[in-house]
């Protein structure tokens, strides 16, 4: 019975029905399933399938987002349950992400944040036009494993370099991996400014983050 319910949760994620994911998650708790089991054997399995389908070009961005939304809503139900059991969902790592100062572009950054969140990272999304000192403060506060810096403009991509320099000045550059993204960004630029990584798209960024926190 329980495996059937977990399978339904997986399918609701894969087929993009967040409301159903929420209902099934509640049902699973009522049936006495452990929150960690629901996450590991239901939700995460679904997200992995969605990621695979995206990479084989069967799925497109809206599929990714709706699946992540189902995952997120289910997690909102499961978090209090985990806390009451003094358990934690296995965190893949802590991520601070935002678009750099002067850059108001949101879509790509949010997509990466959503996908990382759905992949088990604890994501702190600072939004857009984030002052450099706010990034630094948040990294210190959360002990972040990864700092994601987004820039869509050639005029704001240099701010990514600036953030890295200020991390160095603050003496915490070696405590956090800096990953960068955005339309004009390339691996070459990542090398130039001393970033730890660059990914092509949201799915790629999850892979990159997983590699960097190992």
């Amino acid at each position: 019975m329980s495996s059937e319910l977990l399978n339904k949760i997986t399918i609701s994620i894969v087929e993009g029905r967040p409301d159903e994911t929420v209902d099934l998650t509640r049902q699973a708790l009522v049936d006495g399933l452990e929150p960690l089991t629901i996450i590991d054997e239901g939700l995460t399995v679904g997200m992995n399938i969605v990621g695979d389908k995206f990479q084989t070009c069967e799925y497109y961005l809206p599929h990714l987002i709706i699946a992540a939304s189902g995952m997120k809503q289910a997690m909102e139900i499961l978090e209090p349950e985990l806390q009451s059991r003094q358990q934690e969902a296995e965190s893949a790592g802590v991520v601070v992400i935002g678009s750099v100062a002067g850059d108001i572009h949101e879509i790509g950054k949010s997509l990466v944040g959503t996908m990382m969140s759905a992949s088990g990272f604890q994501v702190h999304d600072l939004g857009v036009d984030v002052p450099t000192e706010v990034f630094i403060a948040k990294v210190k506060e959360t002990g972040a494993d990864i700092l994601g810096l987004s820039a869509l403009l050639t005029t704001t991509m240099t701010v990514q370099r600036q953030v890295i320099r200020e991390l160095e000045e603050a003496g915490i550059r070696d405590q956090v991996k800096v990953v960068i993204g955005g339309a004009p960004i390339s691996q070459e630029w990542a090398n130039t400014i001393g970033a730890d990584g660059y990914a092509e798209d949201a799915v790629g960024s999850v892979e990159l983050a997983k590699q960097l926190v190992v």
Partner: peptide, 28 residues
Amino acid sequence: LAQPHTLKWFDKELYLPSAVIDRGSLDA
């Protein structure tokens, strides 16, 4: 991008080409 409206309509409104058409970034 996160709206159900988008999921409902995107593949009917937009022509989705195969990988014959390249629309990735330079790096990709």
